[in-house]
């Protein structure tokens, strides 16, 4: 059985600063990896490389035991600090656009479902540029989850969320984990997902080392 995600010896420099320096990581089905490390230690860069958004200088990335390919991109979900939403489209249109990109069969229904889940169904006709930070974050979560990815990359997903939304998010993560999704989670929060059992890894000097559990 191959890993959902496997990184081997990843190196990446930005300018002349080497951010990642031989990082190794595997994620298996139903596993949540909590990635910690100080600011600027390369957590976001690691996610970008792992999600195939950025090419490593050295090292290999594999998804589901294969090299990353366009087809496999349909099975991963990414949430970064940028929401990837269009300010000039409404919440509903944004979600529907991404649902169409992923070719979901029941796109309309899925969109309504997720709008309700992130409690934006009342604001679905509002342009996203008028959204608050928390609303945008909720919509971005819906955007990253809507195609039911098998591997999820989440960079500070709890950012800007209120207590209720945080609890919802934790509940979804739990449910997805049970359904066999592998999750790579970067968060400076640790109380929000206390109920989840996670494997902690620490990013230090561009490598991943075993960290203490929360």
């Amino acid at each position: 059985m191959s890993h959902l995600l496997e990184l081997q010896g990843i190196q990446k420099s930005l300018g002349h600063r080497s951010v990642l320096n031989g990082a190794d990581l595997t994620i298996d089905a139903g596993e949540i990896v909590w990635l910690v490390g100080p600011n600027g230690s390369g957590k976001t860069t690691l996610i970008k490389v792992a999600a195939g958004m950025s090419t490593p200088g050295k090292g290999t990335v594999s998804w589901f035991g294969n090299r990353p390919s366009p087809r496999l991109r349909a099975r991963i979900g990414v949430l970064l600090d940028a929401s990837f939403l269009y300010g000039e489209l409404t919440a509903e249109e944004n979600l529907f656009y991404y649902a169409r990109i992923y070719g979901l069969q029941d796109a309309r229904q899925k969109v309504q479902e997720w709008l309700e889940r992130v409690r934006l169904h009342r604001d679905k006709h509002v342009l996203v540029k008028a959204f608050s930070k928390g609303m945008k974050q909720r919509l971005a979560i819906a955007r990253a989850f809507i195609h039911q990815p098998e591997v999820l990359f989440l960079d500070e997903p709890y950012d800007g969320l209120d207590v209720a939304s945080s609890q919802h998010l934790t509940a979804w993560l739990k449910a997805m984990r049970e359904a066999g999704t592998g999750i790579l989670l970067v968060s400076h929060e640790d109380t929000a997902f206390r109920g989840l059992s996670v494997r902690t890894l620490k990013l230090s000097q561009g490598r991943l080392i075993k960290g203490e559990s929360p």
């Binding site: 420099s13 930005l14 300018g15 002349h16 950025s54 090419t55 490593p56 200088g57």
Partner: peptide, 9 residues
């Protein structure tokens, strides 16, 4: 372009 890989490509 700051990213070395990207600049080169």
């Amino acid at each position: 372009i700051t990213d070395r890989e990207r600049a080169a490509k």
